[in-house]
């Protein structure tokens, strides 16, 4: 009985220490070293930007086996912030994001295809406005290493091109504004 326990413990230690096993990271939303921003064309003349202030998530990543990387993120849609109260109210309302009916959006990765630079294409299921669809995010690796406070961090940036009407949001923002670009900055602290 005892030896079985130690065998198990030894195996567990081996697995967790194994370089083949991807490390788990929590997205540093606490220190706000991560952001979910959006960019949408204003009349084809300029960019309107804003962000979702509240979200959380974690990911697994190991530079030695990047293809095993995975990520889960949950976004509080009501934290939509375009730096304009009237517009925030309007966009959170039932004509647009309808945050009362659909308070959370989420992304769960299904596969990661790495490239030579440490980035790649992250595919996954995006749930937004109550609709789930597969999307692909172009990811760049920004950096990785020890932080000055005894932790270990890795960071990525990515862009997701989103067509809100494909998720059932049929509002009119004009022909130049059919695509929303989600600019993602994700820094994780190793657990």
């Amino acid at each position: 009985m005892k030896s079985k326990f130690f065998k198990g413990l030894a195996l567990a230690t081996l697995i967790s220490a194994s370089p083949l096993y991807a490390a788990d990271y929590v997205i540093d939303t606490k220190g706000a070293h991560a952001s979910i921003e959006f960019r949408i064309s204003h009349l084809g003349i300029s960019w309107l930007t804003g962000r979702f202030n509240t979200f959380n998530g974690d990911f697994s990543y190991d530079a030695k086996s990047p293809a095993d990387a995975s990520i889960n993120v949950e976004v509080d849609v009501a934290s939509f912030d375009s730096n304009h109260a009237e517009r925030n109210k309007h966009i959170r309302g039932d004509e647009y994001l309808n945050v009362k009916e659909h308070p959370t959006a989420s992304f769960k990765s299904t596969s990661f295809t790495p490239n030579a630079e440490g980035g790649g294409v992250m595919k996954g299921m995006l749930t937004l406005y109550g609709t789930t669809k597969e999307v692909a995010i172009d990811v760049d690796k920004v950096g990785e290493g020890e932080d000055p406070w005894g932790g270990y961090r890795v960071g990525f940036s990515g862009t997701l091109e989103l067509k809100p009407h494909e998720f059932g949001m049929n509002y009119k923002l004009g022909p130049a504004a059919e695509t929303v670009y989600m600019d993602l900055n994700i820094e994780g602290i190793r657990k």
Partner: peptide, 8 residues
């Protein structure tokens, strides 16, 4: 209070 919520 709606229109002035962000200090505008």
């Amino acid at each position: 209070l709606i229109s002035t919520a962000d200090g505008r």
